[in-house]
Amino acid sequence: MDGALALEVVSKDTYLPAFQEYYAVVPACLMDEHYIPTLLSLTEWTRNANRTLTFADWRMGGVHPRTYGRDDVKEELIREIRGGAGKNCTYNDGANGICYLFARKFAPDALEPLLSLAPKVMGFG
Results as ranks from 00 to 15, higher is better:
61 G>R: 01
48 N>P: 02
12 K>P: 04
106 F>S: 00
46 T>A: 15
74 K>A: 13
33 E>D: 14
9 V>R: 00
64 H>Q: 12
11 S>D: 11
50 N>T: 06
38 T>H: 11
69 G>M: 02
89 C>K: 02
44 E>Q: 12
13 D>H: 10
61 G>M: 03
26 V>K: 10
16 L>N: 03
87 K>V: 05
123 G>K: 05
12 K>S: 15
75 E>A: 10
52 T>A: 14
23 Y>H: 08
79 R>F: 04
29 C>W: 03
112 E>P: 02
48 N>W: 14
7 L>F: 08
47 R>C: 10
90 T>H: 07
85 A>L: 08
87 K>C: 06
10 V>M: 13
59 R>Q: 10
114 L>G: 00
116 S>I: 09
26 V>M: 11
60 M>I: 06
3 G>M: 10
6 A>G: 09
19 F>K: 01
9 V>G: 03
111 L>P: 01
111 L>W: 07
2 D>N: 15
34 H>V: 12
57 D>E: 03
43 T>S: 14
20 Q>G: 09
76 E>N: 06
36 I>G: 01
102 F>V: 05
48 N>C: 11
3 G>C: 14
47 R>V: 08
44 E>P: 02
2 D>Y: 04
97 G>H: 05
92 N>W: 09
39 L>H: 01
77 L>W: 00
91 Y>L: 10
36 I>L: 13
27 P>M: 06
33 E>V: 06
85 A>G: 09
116 S>G: 15
20 Q>F: 08
77 L>A: 03
28 A>S: 15
103 A>H: 02
124 F>M: 09
71 D>R: 09
19 F>S: 04
79 R>A: 05
115 L>S: 11
29 C>H: 04
80 E>Y: 05
82 R>D: 04
38 T>V: 12
37 P>S: 07
63 V>G: 07
75 E>D: 10
72 D>N: 07
69 G>Y: 05
67 T>E: 13
16 L>G: 01
22 Y>F: 15
42 L>V: 10
112 E>W: 05
79 R>E: 13
95 A>R: 08
57 D>P: 00
43 T>Q: 12
65 P>Y: 03
100 Y>V: 01
72 D>P: 03
109 D>I: 05
68 Y>C: 07
122 M>Q: 09
13 D>S: 11
92 N>C: 09
38 T>Q: 08
4 A>W: 07
34 H>K: 11
6 A>W: 07
48 N>F: 13
107 A>R: 07
27 P>I: 06
110 A>H: 00
28 A>D: 09
69 G>R: 04
41 S>Y: 06
62 G>K: 00
25 V>K: 14
53 L>M: 14
104 R>Q: 10
72 D>W: 02
9 V>D: 02
